[in-house]
Design a protein around this nucleic acid. Structure first.
Length: 744
DNA sequence: GGTCTGCAGCTTTTT
DNA sequence: GCTGCAGACC
């Protein structure tokens, strides 16, 4: 029996109102996830089978958290509910019925990278220079068109029929053709094709409408036109649709999200009930106050009055750094200090505007010996060696996938060069065959005898691997793949540190497949590939909570932490320079600031750097206007008392490679002391650029794992450490290598 | 025909 | 500070 008394009155109303359309306007930290999970549990308690419930979230992380919390309330019965992202949900629907749209079941899902490859080849085939038609811009335009559900022709009408747009529209059309030829969908297609499937096949639509009697959509303010349409279709006529969102947290306008979807919900569903959640359970008064003041500078919002019963708490700290290194050092040292005060590392987060900001921060964390974890992008699967192996799998699962095949046909090197590939490709094009067919029919493609032999061998390899794929479980198959392609052997031939780390990554991939197999005993290779396409490593939650979180503000949405750092509070960084003169963009940046501030439960640290390396040049940016929008009374600002205490950089750090202490941090109690205090040793030294590691230190390397320092050479930024990883020793540059000291 | 090396350009945020 | 591409070299 779930206990509704643990909810406040509006929360309870939102849970209990199960029939008809419901809009829940949930301010930051107002218990939104709790409402959603209780709602699912409540529905089940009323006798609704879990499989009739569809809950859609924006990120995999949010989906997983929701699924976990539902399970806590309902037990295993809750596992039957579909709780997933829009994209994963669509992939699941398409996997079943995409043949009705003329694709084959084993369609590939292309990531942004693959899309770029396709676009580049389309531009090339059309003889358009990438100077005049930058692939990035073309891709963005196409994606934008798709998110607005516009076909190439419709897009042309909408964008204006000039010569340039006509070309864009042609590229878009060719791109679509190419994807189809490769039996592949891009991310946007997942939504578009699902819409197409449902609207063109009434029985399929009816099936899902009947099945999903109750639909919940999280982060509704971030839905785009296609997602909106999908929700409407699925909700059918019953309208048992509950959407939850906060217009102040709409931060995906650039991806086609349309804030009007939430603002107009009551117009779209006139019978809709509206519940406002305004009590904030997350943040202290000062933090909430700051957030409210900042967001109040936006226009056209739904009025909300977020309040809290919590006390004022500490004031918001503001650190004036000399440069980005100084700022990063401050963040790392402060994080360390907080940990010394008993804060769990998992309750500390550093949230930045752009991924590019993470590098300096990472370096500071490594130097300071503070365990951290960077969440961001799909880094792991984007690594060359991993992507290569994935492309082998994709080419095997989906023989129409020329894009993947081209990538691996000569990887590792087997003497099949560009010219040979082009010959094969033109043979394939003439006969309207996929490239793979040309490979298997190398004798007929008019190749030189040498090329014929090499391509023939490659074809045999692919045939053997196809057999293996059908006979073996994914875990075993990956090992076969690595062995038969000789991928690792090729890397081992040159034992460079780079290759060593690639081999380690490949081991990690093997591990990932094994883990997938364990969690999905029924899953085949294509299921694994789908997982890879839709689930980024950013979704891997750090269950142990043993490290500080570094991520972008965008990925932090929906999360909360005791202590939050917002570095880079500068006009030009946050808000981004391109948003400074555009009101709409500026408002979106402000909402992003609101999201950032409201992630913090107890303590918030803002910082800015007087100068910073930006786009390859050192620039000086003014303090972010968003900081100015926070009332001074809420800020513990250094510049108002005392003077800065400049510590001259140590002579051996004259290259500037080591971070310098000396930014001003007055008003933040104990920051300078923090350089001493409990962590005097390693911290003061880290800042001075003196020895960081000593013999006997236990360390963790991001790729090599646990080890022990067995040799140290040099000092400061130039320090070289030799580490023994259970028998294998490696030497690293201490300032660059991703090594963390485990015990101090 | 294939591979290696040096130089330019680029960076918003994500499924 | 990394990737893609062009040109030189094998």
């Amino acid at each position: 029996m779930i206990d509704l008394s643990r909810l406040n009155p509006p929360q309870r109303a939102a849970v209990a109102c199960t029939e008809g359309p419901l809009l829940v306007l949930a301010g930051a930290g107002s218990g939104k996830t709790r409402v959603l999970t209780y709602r699912v549990a409540h529905l089940m308690e009323m006798g609704v089978p879990a499989w009739k419930i569809l809950a859609i979230t924006f990120t995999n992380k949010a989906a997983r958290e929701m699924a976990d919390r539902v399970r806590q309330l309902t037990g295993e019965a809750g596992d039957e509910a579909w709780i997933s992202t829009f994209h994963a949900c669509c992939a699941r629907i398409l996997r079943r019925d995409i043949e009705k749209l003329g694709y084959k079941r084993q369609f590939a899902i292309y990531d942004a990278d693959d899309s770029m490859t396709v676009i580049k080849s389309v531009l090339k085939a059309m003889n358009l220079s990438d100077k005049e038609y930058p692939p990035r811009a073309v891709r963005a335009a196409i994606s934008d068109a798709k998110n607005r559900m516009l076909s190439p022709k419709e897009w042309l009408l909408d964008a204006g029929d000039d010569a340039r747009n006509r070309k864009y529209s042609e590229v878009y059309a060719e791109y679509e053709k190419a994807l189809r030829g490769n039996n592949a969908l891009d991310f946007d297609d997942l939504l578009i094709r699902t819409l197409e499937l449902l609207s063109q096949n009434p029985p399929v639509l009816e099936y899902y409408q009947r099945r999903f009697e109750y639909i919940l959509v999280d982060e509704y303010q971030d839905t785009n036109a296609a997602q909106y349409e999908l929700v409407r279709l699925l909700a059918g006529t019953k309208h048992n649709l509950c959407v939850v969102g906060d217009d102040d947290q709409s931060i995906y306008g650039w991806r086609g999200a349309d804030i009007r979807n939430i603002l107009d919900f009551e117009k779209d569903f006139p019978e809709a009930k509206v519940v406002k959640l305004e009590q904030n359970y997350r943040s202290t008064g000062n933090i909430l106050d700051a957030a409210n003041q900042v967001i109040a500078h936006n226009r056209g919002r739904k009025e909300k009055a977020l309040w809290t019963e919590a006390g004022a708490g500490e004031r918001i700290a503001l650190y004036h750094a000399l440069d980005e290194r100084d700022e990063a050092a401050f963040v790392a040292q402060m994080a360390r200090k907080l940990m010394g005060q008993g804060e769990r590392p998992g309750e500390i987060a550093v949230l930045y505007r752009t991924n590019a900001q993470s590098r300096v921060l990472e370096e500071a964390f490594v130097r300071g010996g503070v365990p951290y974890r960077v969440y961001g992008g799909q880094k792991f699967y984007e690594r060359k060696e991993i992507k290569d192996l994935i492309c082998y799998m994709r080419a095997l699962v989906n023989p129409d996938d020329d894009v993947s095949l081209r990538r691996i046909v000569n990887e590792p090197r087997r003497g099949i060069g560009e010219a040979t590939i082009e010959q094969l490709a033109s043979y394939a094009a003439q006969n309207e065959l996929p490239l793979m067919s040309a490979v298997l029919d190398a004798d007929a493609a008019g190749l030189s005898s040498r090329a014929r032999k090499l391509v023939g061998e490659f074809g045999e390899l692919m045939v053997d691997l196809t057999d293996a794929m059908y006979e073996q479980r994914p875990g075993e198959f990956v090992r076969t793949l690595i062995d038969r392609t000789g991928y690792v052997r090729a890397l081992e031939a040159a034992r460079t540190p780079e290759n060593e780390s690639r081999i380690e990554n490949i081991k990690e991939l093997e591990g990932a497949v094994a883990e997938f197999e364990r969690l999905n005993p029924e899953g085949g290779l294509s299921d694994f590939l789908e997982n890879v396409a839709l689930v980024s490593d950013a979704d891997a939650v750090d269950e142990a909570g043993g490290s500080v979180t570094l991520m972008t503000l965008h990925s932090a949405k929906g999360l909360e932490f005791d202590c939050v750092f917002l570095p880079g509070m500068e006009d030009g960084v946050f808000p981004l320079s391109r948003a400074l003169y555009d009101d709409d963009q500026l408002e979106e940046e402000r909402r992003l600031a609101y999201v950032g501030i409201t992630r913090a439960k107890k303590r918030l640290f803002l910082s800015h750097a007087r100068t910073r390396m930006l786009y390859n040049a050192r620039s000086a940016n003014p303090l972010s206007r968003f900081v100015g929008e926070i009332p001074a009374r809420l800020i513990a600002d250094s510049s108002q008392r005392g003077e800065s205490r400049r510590v001259p950089p140590p002579s051996h750090a004259r290259t500037g490679a080591a971070p310098r202490a000396g930014g001003r941090a007055l008003g933040i109690e104990g920051v300078q002391k923090g350089y001493g205090g409990k962590f005097v040793g390693s911290q003061a030294r880290a800042l001075g650029g003196v020895a960081l590691f000593r013999n006997g230190d236990r360390v963790i390397h991001r790729a090599f794992g646990r080890g022990e320092v067995v040799g140290v050479e040099g000092e400061g930024a130039d320090q070289k450490v030799t580490v023994d990883f259970g028998g294998r020793t490696r030497t690293f540059s201490a300032s660059i290598a991703p090594i963390i000291k485990v015990e101090t």
